[in-house]
Amino acid sequence: MANLGIGIIGLGMGRSLLPINGDPSFPATVRGICDVRLERVDAAKAEHGIEFGTDSYDALLDRSDIDLIAVYTPDGLHRDQTVQALEAGKHVLVTKPMTVSTEESEAIVGAARRTGKRVMPAQTFRYVLPHLTAKKFIDLGELGDIYFVAADYYQDLRPVYDYSPWRYEIPQDFVYGGLSHNIDTMRFLKGEIVEVAAYGSYSGLDNRYPRDKHETFVVNVKFEDGTLGRIAMAPCVRPPLPNIYVQVFGTSGTFVENQIVLDGIAGQPIIDFDYAQEAYAAAEQRVARNFVESIIADVPQDLNEVDGARVTAVGDAIWESIGSGGTPVKVRLDF
């Protein structure tokens, strides 16, 4: 079986992929790593048996034993690093958000078409067990016609700021960096979002984040078929909820994160799902596996650059709606 070479840039979140070197079933090997902090590089090389480590992205791209670059840097760097990798003849797995503007998305879509190389945005919340389960029940038709979908994102960002200060220093734009999780989860469960109406606010749970930005969002959405949905992001004291919490209402059943009720079962008992406890890295590795296996089998991967562009376009529409005082805004889909 083919074994692809992976090069990772950004060992913060990117370290999630390192354990694949210890997984004999994984048809790829991390052969090179890159980070601006060389002490991270050296530690990862030693721990995971990786031969090549560098703080030079060019040096990583020069490696002929690397077929696929995994981009796990701060959001604003994704466009240039992705385009550069494509032009170096590499496929690119890029952490969410693929981009932070439609202009950036166009650059990536253009480069992918020009080079014939593949791009996969790592939208990990498609790959967590509750959302895979929800999708399965939708696809099986058990929930009937789906007419409402919600995906909410609540997280205490204070510890996240502690280990990734760039989020408040640059700062991260949470419509792209945060809501891209919810947006893609919604797209996964129901299809394209065509309209949004949004409010944003600065709640100020952690005042390291700039006061003139927004970090709390409520968004109502419409899908292509007229279905309604909604998403929210709220930084808060650790909520007693999963990070991303989905609800799916259908004509014959209701799914809420780890529970389901079906009309088809007499008495409509609440059925609980007892998912295995997983680290977040498990979802990252599932994304990477889908990408690698799709490349090897020469079949389309689950998500490509057009999906990434559409997620960002929903983000653009959310900002436009907030800027116009909450007026509904159409989402661009043609990429």
């Binding site: 606010s201 709390t216 409520v218 609800q247 209402f249 209701t254 009309d263 409509q268």
Partner: peptide
């Protein structure tokens, strides 16, 4: 200045909430 949201849904299979 706080934002919030409300869901009021009456056509659905009784949810586990």
């Amino acid at each position: 200045g706080v934002i919030g949201r409300i869901m009021a849904v009456f056509g659905l299979v009784e949810p586990p909430q």
